[in-house]
């Protein structure tokens, strides 16, 4: 069997790919959050940041492609594993009893699909700008005089829509919930966890997920509450 075949076909291989792709996506959403938080700074900051990202050119596309591959692997294996796991228990118990499995762990597939739906919406909304072709036209003059795309305005305008903001907040909440099992789980799958680390790791995951959720939610809330305004 080829290495990739073994990884994609064995149960542990699949889990490993889930963990590694999950880890990459976890890194991405963390970085994405840090970048976005610049919305609280003067508009120069986030617009410069977006400009630098865009000027990576081919590298940016490579990163995007890599992230997309990770996402596809993660989602595809999730579907595959879910179906296989269901098939492994053809007849359900009449009495459902849970010993210690957390709710987050039991709804991973469902939270995952909400997150996937959100990602599709989010990309359509801000990256492809469906329904808002004008966002591609907004420009901004940096202090050194360079004209760049005005991401700040795009964010503010986007979040000014109540429905969009609510969906966004809900989705990041669900993503945080997804991560609360995912972070601990991926460490176990990578074989790096034992009883000694478990408590600390679990606490880190909870703290991280709350922080992730609150910081993410703070942006639409700040826009709706008028704390972050469209610059002049």
């Amino acid at each position: 069997m080829h290495l990739l075949g073994a990884l994609f076909n064995s149960s542990i291989g699949k889990k490993l790919l889930m963990a590694v792709s999950g880890l990459v996506l976890f890194g991405f959403v963390t970085g994405h959050l840090v970048g976005n938080l610049q919305v609280f700074l003067p508009p120069d900051a986030i617009n410069l940041y977006a400009h630098r990202l865009e000027s990576l050119g081919i590298v940016l596309w490579l990163i995007r492609a890599f992230l997309l591959v990770c996402l596809i692997v993660h989602v595809w294996l999730a579907i595959k594993l879910t179906l296989e796991n269901r098939a492994a228990r053809p007849e359900a118990y009449a009495v459902q009893h849970v010993n210690r499995a957390t709710l987050a762990s039991r709804v991973m597939a469902r939270t995952g699909f909400v997150v996937l739906a959100f990602i599709v919406f989010h990309l359509a909304h801000y990256t492809v700008r469906i329904g808002h072709p004008e966002w591609a036209e907004h420009t901004f003059r940096l202090s050194d005089g360079t004209m760049v795309r005005d991401v700040h305005t795009m964010i503010v305008q986007g979040f000014s829509h109540l429905g969009v903001s609510i969906f966004y907040i809900l989705a990041v909440g669900i993503l945080a919930y997804h991560l609360s099992h995912g972070i601990v789980s991926l460490v176990q799958t990578l074989g790096l966890k034992n009883e000694r680390w478990t408590r600390g790791l679990e606490r880190f995951a909870v703290a991280y997920c709350w922080l992730y959720f609150l910081l993410n939610a703070s942006m639409p809330l700040a826009v709706l509450g008028g704390f972050v305004k469209q610059h002049a």
């Binding site: 889990k15 296989e84 210690r100 799958t189």
Partner: peptide, 26 residues
């Protein structure tokens, strides 16, 4: 099926074998 790291297994194990061994096997 595959492991989804919920540790129901070790919770019911009559010999209380730890799921840490699963990490080790991974």
């Amino acid at each position: 099926g595959s492991c989804t790291n919920q540790y129901e297994c070790s919770a019911v194990c009559p010999k209380l074998i730890s799921h840490d061994f699963i990490a080790r096997m991974n």
